[in-house]
């Protein structure tokens, strides 16, 4: 028996967060304020996502935590351990087996199902923040649907760089109403936001929760003559040879050689286990043997 209440937070707090989540699901893309709690980790490490996960976890659930697509980086490992300790839930690295997936900055390559929940960690939930510093003003702009300013940002991108250079946290419009920051996922992932799973976004420091119900219409903003382009590095994965997954660029040495590998480690590993080998990879059996 753990000394913690199930999933660390007390029951009243979880009820409060669940109410915020339900409101967020009822008004897709709307940022619901909630009384964010102090968590035993620093702001910026996913305190919002952790609180949302704690509120939706059940004892029989299996949890997966990913950080930039990887299951084995500091943020993912520490949050996974946190829930192993405080909620004693089973954890997994396999996307298919997970019921709740907490993610930082990626959507898994594997399509999610209706019985899964994807929880995002959000640093700055307000898409208009860097253009309009006043919270009073941005909330009014959301309320009155005054979203011209969002296009000013994209205009500036094209004027300076010749193309929309925003490559992550690319603003989207939800169900033709609210403009939403999809958290800093690469814009490659934006088309995947229309999915079967429930998506919940938690921002701990900014005290906001927002949500996308399954199959919600999510449109990336763009100009008629500069349409949205979900770009990625133009290479196959060096390890598994995948042509259609999002890639990380890894610097190999001081002389400039580099390789591109899937950022989704589970996806890459399962492909290699199925026998796919990239041009810099070795067969899966040799590594695991």
């Amino acid at each position: 028996m753990s000394d913690y209440n199930f999933a660390y937070l007390d029951e009243q707090t979880k009820r409060m967060i669940r109410r915020a989540i339900l409101k967020g699901l009822a008004v897709p893309g709307y940022q619901v304020p909630f009384a964010s709690r102090e968590m035993p980790m620093p702001y910026g490490w996913g305190t919002g996502g952790v609180q949302v996960s704690a509120a939706v976890l059940c004892p029989e659930d299996t949890m997966k935590v990913i950080d930039q697509g990887a299951d084995d980086t500091t943020n993912a490992v520490s949050i996974r351990k946190f829930f192993e300790k405080t909620a004693e839930v089973a954890t997994t690295e396999t996307t298919k087996e997970a019921d709740v997936i907490q993610t930082r900055h990626r959507i898994p390559e594997q399509d999610l199902r209706e019985d899964q929940i994807l929880v995002y960690q959000v640093p700055i939930p307000e898409p208009l923040r860097f253009l309009e510093p006043s919270e009073v003003e941005t909330r009014k702009m959301h309320a009155l649907e005054e979203y011209g300013l969002m296009h000013v940002k994209l205009y500036e991108d094209i004027a300076r760089n010749g193309a929309i250079a925003t490559s992550y946290a690319y603003p989207v419009k939800v169900e033709g109403r609210y403009v939403m920051d999809p958290s800093p996922i690469p814009k490659f992932d934006n088309p995947k936001l229309e999915m079967a799973a429930v998506q919940l976004f938690g921002a701990g420091r900014e005290q906001r929760i927002y949500a996308l119900p399954p199959y919600t219409q999510v449109v990336s903003l763009d100009f008629e003559d500069h349409p949205f382009d979900p770009s990625k590095a133009d290479h196959p994965c060096g390890l598994c040879g995948s042509e259609d997954s999002y890639l990380d660029e890894v610097i190999m040495d001081d002389s400039g050689s580099r390789m591109f590998v899937c950022s989704d480690t589970d996806y890459c590993q399962s492909r290699r286990a199925a026998g796919h080998v990239g041009h810099q990879g070795v067969p899966f059996e040799e590594v695991s043997a």
Binding site: L131, H151, E156, A159
Partner: peptide
């Protein structure tokens, strides 16, 4: 004015606020 936004963006903001979505025309 929006001091952090280019002159073109400043002029274009009102156009975009009333629904202009063609970069070439705005420019």
């Amino acid at each position: 004015l929006r001091m952090g936004v280019s002159a073109g963006g400043n002029v274009g903001e009102r156009l975009m606020a009333v629904g202009a979505r063609n970069y070439g025309n705005i420019r």
